[in-house]
Design a binder for these strands. Structure first.
Length: 581
RNA sequence: CGGGGCGUAGCGCAGUCUGGUAGCGCACCACACUGGGGGUGUGGUGGUCACAGGUUCAAAUCCUGUCGUCCCGACCA
């Protein structure tokens, strides 16, 4: 037996040997809390903008995430592969993305002047592989995945590992002869993702997502809920409906339009150009006012007016999907509007408009409303649809708000912010068709495979978990992600033999049981050790001090507990077993 | 790519306007004290003041250029 074998293992579980690179001060360039805490707790260090080294502690967390992802992917029937980070330009030319992708694709040239890129994703490589290897429908469906470093030359890397230039992603690609088979695998992946995020201990929502330009019939994003999230998501308080706010439908109001009671009148409103100002000027609620936005049409020089209730916001994704409206959405310039309609932004309204008009469902049921008169400094009051102006085509134009009825008819919508950590979608034949990935079907006919793809941002999960789980003292890891489960904190062990003995005994017992335990055997004062173990976020802490030990007790405290509890020395293992599940 | 901020020790910062010995706190090393919430004292280590050029007897400081980095926006999904 080689003595150093055990010695090496022994040492890494002790803070005196393990690299604990904590910092008291918050680095000035870290904006969000996860970035600050990852630096302060010594998980990562920046090497350049958007590029980070993972320190031992951080890497342990990253590996935890990867392990769970692998276990669940394997369990789903997917098979792991590993594809190169560096990829030949030819493949990207085949799919057409060498031209399409833009500067985010980091292109490099080798010594023979041949073009390559560092892969931001791997559709091309996997499709080429499957095209060459798979001949028959009998070999399908096939789902291949990898856990691999991706490179994206982000315009502006930010928020630490949340949006970095190099990151680890689990990406999977499935291949099918039929849409039905794709749908089946898609559902399996949906369930697998739900299992993964549940096991990781994160509060998440699968969210209906925009399929964007890629098309396809289904796409879901998985979001970790956190106030700092980049996306707004709407979900029902009474069902599992959840959608990106971009996609969430605002249902038509239940009530029908009331009969007119007021006569239309002209009001001089000098300098009133906002809904708030108008409501204030007329002493009415903003919900009785209409706002009229003008966007560019899909024909050159064409304009389209969009009418919303004063308190509502335009949803640009919905608007861009309207017939006759340019996609992506472009707001018209004010001088263009003035030339066409005779008034500037603050004085527009649906009365007498001779361009195409859409009205939002909520605005369409208003009666006796107030709106601009298409004349600067003038508004109308007491306006009614079909009496004073025609009712335009009604559409869902607005952004949903908290309290709206859920589109599935169950409950009300709540809105929270989310961090996108997973995305599954049905790709169809975009890549398989472009790259000629075909198989023979049961009738002997050549058919193009249909594909699904499924991504998880592994590095981003670490940051998202911290955004969701932290307090003033530092990180609070979910059990499944914690770098160590238990911290043993002996106080003054250099002087107290009893403390040292108790600590070493407990340490040995936990090691024997296979518990990931970190022994803080540094000759530091208690405050330093407590602060470090809390900052680093270890879920369970056992403090061993002379005081309690004299009574035969140790102290246990969970990371989220307010206070420690005394535990008889011989009951500690039992307690920890219970806590660790 | 547009706008703005910042580059001085590992981290946080002062010094720059008004040119004249490169500083403070934390961290780190040594010793002593202390020992239940980032402790105290004494003595230390560590800097090409982002880089290049210029002005000057003299540049962290003034001038010109370059680079890096952060924020906002646009872009991307």
């Amino acid at each position: 037996m080689f003595p150093f074998q055990t010695a090496c293992h022994e040492f890494v579980m002790r803070t005196s040997q393990f690299l604990i690179a904590t910092q008291k001060e918050t680095p000035a360039d870290a904006e969000i809390v996860s970035h600050q805490l990852m630096l302060r707790a010594g998980l990562i260090r920046k090497i350049a903008a958007g590029l980070y080294t993972w320190l031992p502690l951080g890497l342990r967390v990253l590996r935890k995430v990867e392990t769970i992802v692998r276990e669940e992917m394997d369990r789903s029937g997917a098979q792991e592969v590993s594809m190169p980070v560096m990829q030949p330009a030819e493949l990207w030319e085949e799919s057409g993305r060498w031209e399409q992708y833009g500067p985010e694709l980091l292109r490099i040239r080798d010594r023979h002047e041949r073009d390559f890129c560092l892969g931001p994703t791997h559709e091309e490589v996997i499709t080429a592989l499957v095209r060459d290897e798979i001949r028959s429908y009998k070999q399908l469906p096939l789902n291949l995945y990898q856990v691999q470093t991706k490179v994206r030359d982000e315009i502006r890397p930010r928020f630490g590992v949340m949006r970095s230039r190099e990151f680890i992603m689990k990406d999977a690609y499935s291949f099918h002869v039929s849409q039905a088979s794709l749908q089946e695998t898609y559902e399996v992946m949906f369930d697998t993702y739900s299992r993964i995020f549940t096991r990781l201990g994160l509060e998440f929502r699968p969210v209906i997502a925009d399929t964007g330009s890629i098309g396809g019939s289904a796409s879901h994003e998985f979001h970790v809920l956190a106030d700092s999230g980049e996306d707004a998501i709407a979900f029902s308080d009474a069902s599992d409906y959840a959608a990106n706010v971009e996609m969430a439908e605002a249902l038509a109001p239940g009530e029908t339009r009331a009969q007119p009671t007021a006569a239309m009148a002209r009001a001089d409103t000098p300098g009133v150009t906002t809904i708030d100002a108008l409501a204030g000027f007329l002493s009415v609620e903003s919900t009785t006012c209409l706002k009229t936005l003008v966007v560019k049409g899909d024909q050159d020089g064409a304009l389209v007016a969009l009418v919303l209730r004063g308190d509502h916001q335009l949803n640009t994704v919905k608007a861009a999907h309207l017939e006759g409206v340019a996609s992506p959405l472009q707001m018209a310039a004010e001088d263009e509007v003035r030339a066409a309609l005779g008034a500037g932004f603050g004085s527009l309204g649906p009365v007498g408009l001779d361009i195409p008009v859409y009205v939002d469902r909520a605005a369409a049921v208003l009666a006796d409303f107030n709106c601009g008169a298409n004349e600067d400094g003038v508004h109308f009051t007491g306006v009614n649809w079909e009496r004073d102006c025609p009712l335009p085509q009604v559409a869902d134009l607005r952004e949903v708000v908290e309290g709206d009825p859920s589109p599935d008819g169950k409950g009300k919508l709540r809105i929270r912010r989310g961090i996108e950590v997973g995305h599954i979608f049905q790709l169809g034949d975009k890549y398989s068709a472009a790259m000629g990935a075909r198989v023979l079907d049961e009738t002997g006919k050549n058919v193009t495979m249909t594909m699904g793809c499924y991504g998880i941002g592994v590095t981003r999960i670490v940051a998202a978990a911290i955004e969701q789980n932290h307090d003033d003292s530092g990180i609070i890891w979910p059990h499944s992600m914690a770098p160590f489960q238990v911290a043993i904190v002996p106080l003054n062990m250099r002087k107290s033999e009893a403390v040292a003995d108790a600590a070493e005994t407990l340490y040995a017992q936990l090691r024997e049981l296979g518990v990931e335990v970190l022994m803080d055997d540094r000759d530091e004062r208690p405050g330093v050790k407590f602060a470090d173990m809390e900052l680093v976020g270890i879920p369970h802490r056992v403090v061993i001090g002379d005081r309690a030990l004299a009574e035969g007790n140790l102290e246990y405290k969970g990371r989220r507990d307010a206070d420690a509890q005394l535990v008889p020395q011989d009951k500690v293992i039992e307690l920890l077993r219970e806590k660790l599940g």
